[in-house]
Amino acid sequence: MFHRIRRRAKEPSEEQRRFFELSARLQTQVPPGIGVPPTEVVDDFLPPELRVPSHDQVDGTIMPWKQPLVLDGEMVACAECGTYRDWLILSTRGQIWLRCRAGHQQQETRLDTAWFNRNSGPADATHATFEDCLRHLGH
């Protein structure tokens, strides 16, 4: 009995024969559109009014930081007025600057752009001037 089953298995079935014949016919055929240059190039980019400027097209980015900023176990305070919360953190030209509510600015060398990128959210607006950005953020 097993001998008979093995003998039948050596011969291809009808479905296998049809598959082999079909695949032999299709091997010389090329699907339509393959090897033919596209007739029309489609612009898949967003329209200009929806595009976000790249990092080299902006002078910097700003994020608000309402809570106190603690670096190396020390709370950062404004060097001029002593304010320790409600900062604007500016990232520009590889430097990080802190701006208090009174408008005093100081460079913070303990922070870098990697820290800024990890802690900032997505940009919600772009502005032509620094003053427009400050108005947008309520400063």
Rank of each mutant, 00 (worst) to 15 (best):
R17N: 06
I62W: 03
R7S: 12
P68M: 03
E21I: 02
A125P: 13
D86E: 09
M1C: 15
M1L: 05
Q16Y: 07
R99S: 04
E11Y: 06
L134E: 02
T61G: 15
P48F: 15
P53F: 01
I96E: 00
A77F: 00
G94K: 05
R4M: 10
A77Y: 02
E11S: 15
S13P: 13
Q67I: 06
G94I: 01
G60K: 07
G73A: 07
V70D: 00
F45W: 01
T61H: 12
I62A: 14
R7E: 12
A9S: 15
G35C: 04
S54M: 05
E131A: 14
A24E: 12
A9H: 08
R51Q: 13
L46K: 13
A125Y: 14
E80R: 08
I96M: 08
R17G: 14
A79C: 11
L22G: 10
G60Y: 03
E80N: 10
T28C: 13
K66G: 14
R18E: 10
A79V: 04
E14A: 04
W65F: 11
V58C: 15
V58W: 09
V36T: 09
D44H: 09
T61S: 13
R25H: 04
E15C: 08
H3C: 02
V36S: 11
R110H: 05
T109K: 13
V52F: 14
P31V: 01
R8K: 15
H3A: 07
I62Y: 04
E80M: 13
P53R: 03
R99H: 09
G138K: 08
S13E: 06
H127W: 08
T113W: 03
V76F: 00
P38A: 02
G138Q: 06
P32F: 00
T61A: 15
I89R: 08
R18H: 11
E74K: 00
Q67V: 07
A24H: 06
G94V: 02
V76W: 02
V52I: 15
R110V: 03
S120N: 10
W97C: 08
A24W: 01
T39E: 13
V76H: 00
V42K: 11
R93T: 01
V36F: 01
I34N: 09
D72E: 07
E14Y: 03
R4L: 08
A128V: 02
Q16I: 00
R25P: 03
P38H: 00
E80G: 07
Q67G: 10
H55G: 12
F19Y: 11
V36C: 15
P38M: 01
C100V: 05
R135N: 11
L111P: 03
C133S: 11
A114I: 14
H139T: 10
H127T: 06
T109V: 05
Q106I: 01
V36R: 07
A114L: 06
L71G: 04
G103M: 05
W87T: 00
E11G: 12
D112S: 12
P32D: 04
D112V: 01
V42T: 11
R25L: 12
D43A: 13
D72Q: 05
Y84V: 06
Q107K: 11
G33N: 10
L88T: 02
T126H: 15
S23T: 00
R17W: 08
I96L: 14
R135F: 12
A125S: 15
Q16C: 11
T92F: 11
R93F: 09
C78H: 00
N117C: 08
